[in-house]
C-alpha cells in the first residue's frame, strides 16, 4: 500500500454543545484524491478545517483525538507551517483586497520569498496550474475583485498552490459556479492530482465519481464508509450510503 500522509484517530469535534465530528478514524494516502460526500451539516467542512487548523479560531471549539501528519504529531508543527503545508480552498471564492498578482504572491511573501523574479515565476506557474494564466496574464495588476466568480475561485486555487502545499483541501470549490467554470476547475484538479494529495468535499456525487480515488461518506458527524470510489458508488456496504447515493443520482 502507498504511504500514509495523514492518520486521523478517534477525532471528535464540538462547537459548544454541538458534537460535529464523532470518532472519526480515517487515513489519507500520499498522492491520492480523497473525496468526501455527505448531506448538509454532516461535518465535511469541519473535518477540512480541522486539517487546516482553522476550527481553533472559533472560541467554542473543542476536540479530542489524534492526528498524525508525515509520521509526526500534527500539533508539533507550528500552526503557520502546517497551514502552509496543508492548503485550503474555501467554498466561496474570497480574493484578498489586493491585485491578482499580489493575491497569488501573498503566501510566498509570507514564507520569506522577497525576490521579484522568483515571485513572478511562482505566480505564473501557480496561475497556469489553476488554468487561469491565459485569462489574467494581461491584468495581473488589476484588482482581484474585477475577475468573474469562476476566475476568482481559480485565483484562490492558484493562491493556495503558490504556498507549495503538500495537501490541498477543497471545500465544495464549485458550489457557486457555472458548468464551464466547474469543468475548468475539475481539469485543474486532474492535473494537480499528479503531484499533490487532494481532499475534495463535494455535494456533486458525479464530480466525486469523476475525480476521486477513494470516497468517504459522512453523515451527521460520523464517517459511515470509506472505500475506493468505484466500489463505493457501485456496491456501497452501508445502506445509508446507498440511500444517499441513489437519492443523489436520482
Amino acid at each position: 500500500m502507498v504511504e500514509k500522509k495523514v492518520e486521523v484517530k478517534n477525532l471528535n469535534v464540538w462547537f459548544g454543545q454541538t458534537h460535529s465530528l464523532k470518532d472519526i478514524n480515517l487515513d489519507i494516502y500520499d498522492n491520492e484524491v480523497l473525496t468526501i460526500i455527505g448531506p448538509a451539516n454532516s461535518g465535511k467542512t469541519t473535518f477540512l478545517r480541522m486539517l487546516n487548523r482553522l476550527n481553533e479560531l472559533q472560541e467554542n471549539f473543542r476536540f479530542s483525538g489524534e492526528i498524525i501528519f508525515d509520521h509526526k504529531n500534527f500539533f508539533d508543527f507550528s500552526v503557520q507551517e502546517l497551514r502552509k503545508k496543508i492548503g485550503m480552498v474555501f467554498a466561496l471564492p474570497v480574493p484578498l483586497p489586493l491585485t491578482v498578482f499580489d493575491n497569488v504572491a501573498y503566501g510566498p511573501k509570507l514564507h520569506g520569498i522577497r525576490d521579484r523574479g522568483k515571485l513572478k515565476e511562482i505566480v505564473e506557474r501557480s496561475l497556469r496550474l489553476a488554468y487561469l494564466w491565459e485569462e489574467v496574464k494581461d491584468r495581473l495588476n488589476a484588482s482581484a475583485f474585477l475577475l468573474s466568480g469562476g476566475q476568482q475561485q481559480r485565483l484562490c486555487i492558484a493562491r493556495t498552490l503558490a504556498c507549495e502545499p503538500e495537501i490541498i483541501l477543497f471545500d465544495e470549490p464549485c458550489s457557486g459556479l457555472d458548468p464551464v467554470s466547474t469543468a475548468k476547475i475539475e481539469e485543474a484538479m486532474q492535473e494537480l492530482k499528479k503531484d499533490y494529495t487532494l481532499v475534495l468535499v463535494t455535494n456533486n456525487v458525479k464530480q466525486a465519481a469523476r475525480v476521486g480515488d477513494r470516497t468517504a461518506f459522512f453523515l451527521s458527524g460520523e464517517l459511515i464508509e470509506i472505500e475506493r470510489t468505484d466500489r463505493l458508488f457501485t456496491a456501497p456496504k452501508d445502506n445509508r450510503t446507498e440511500g444517499y447515493i441513489s437519492g443523489r443520482f436520482g
Binding site: 487546516n52 482553522l54 479560531l57 503557520q80 507551517e81 497551514r83 502552509k84 492548503g87 485550503m88 474555501f90 466561496l92 474570497v94 484578498l96 483586497p97 501573498y106 503566501g107 509570507l110 514564507h111 484562490c156 493562491r159 493556495t160 504556498c163
Partner: peptide, 13 residues
Amino acid sequence: YAFREVSLSLGAT
C-alpha cells in the same frame, strides 16, 4: 472576517 481567515489559512501569523 473572511479576509483574515484566508490570510491565516495561507500560513500568516
